[in-house]
Amino acid sequence: MGKIYTLAEVLTHNSPKDCWLIINGKVFDVTKFLEDHPGGEEVLLASIGKDASVDFEDIGHSTTARAMMDEYCVGEIDVATIPKRVKYTPPKQPHYSQDKTAEFIIRLLQFLVPLAILGLAVAVRFCTKSS
């Protein structure tokens, strides 16, 4: 087992000339790999001082890439120093009781408007026959 680093120690290595990151509980010094990284150095620099495990796994690195990691591994992270992610729970809110008046008015208009149009059409028809 290699050296155990705290998150605070990893965070001190946060520049292109001294770049460390965390992947799957291990600490990597990727400073010498920045220029050779196929995805560009920006990808690694964006992961400085954080747990980049999800980003690393999402990309789908090859077996060769995973084997290369060993030469950059400098130790492991003390997981007790990494803040726990808290799942967001929305605050409790009172049940929304919609005002049924608006719904009633819409239904009433859906009935009355066609009826009014029909009545108007009939009235126009009779008025034009009478003249």
Rank of each mutant, 00 (worst) to 15 (best):
Y5K: 04
Y5W: 01
L7A: 01
E9T: 03
E9F: 01
T12D: 15
H13T: 10
N14M: 00
N14D: 00
N14C: 08
S15K: 04
W20C: 01
G25S: 06
V27Q: 02
D29C: 13
T31H: 07
K32N: 01
L34K: 04
L34M: 05
E35G: 03
E35F: 10
D36C: 00
P38M: 13
E41G: 15
S47P: 00
I48W: 05
K50T: 08
S53H: 01
D55Y: 05
F56I: 08
E57C: 12
I59C: 04
G60R: 11
G60H: 00
S62W: 10
T63S: 14
A65Y: 07
R66V: 04
Y72G: 03
Y72I: 12
G75W: 02
G75H: 08
V79C: 11
V79I: 09
T81C: 07
R85L: 08
V86D: 10
V86W: 15
V86L: 08
K87Q: 04
Y88M: 11
H95M: 13
Y96N: 01
Y96M: 01
S97I: 15
D99M: 12
D99F: 08
T101G: 09
A102T: 03
I105Q: 05
V113P: 07
L115G: 09
L115Q: 10
A116D: 04
I117H: 05
L118T: 10
G119P: 09
L120H: 06
L120R: 10
V122A: 11
A123I: 00
V124Q: 09
R125Q: 14
R125E: 11
R125A: 03
C127Q: 15
T128C: 15
S131N: 15
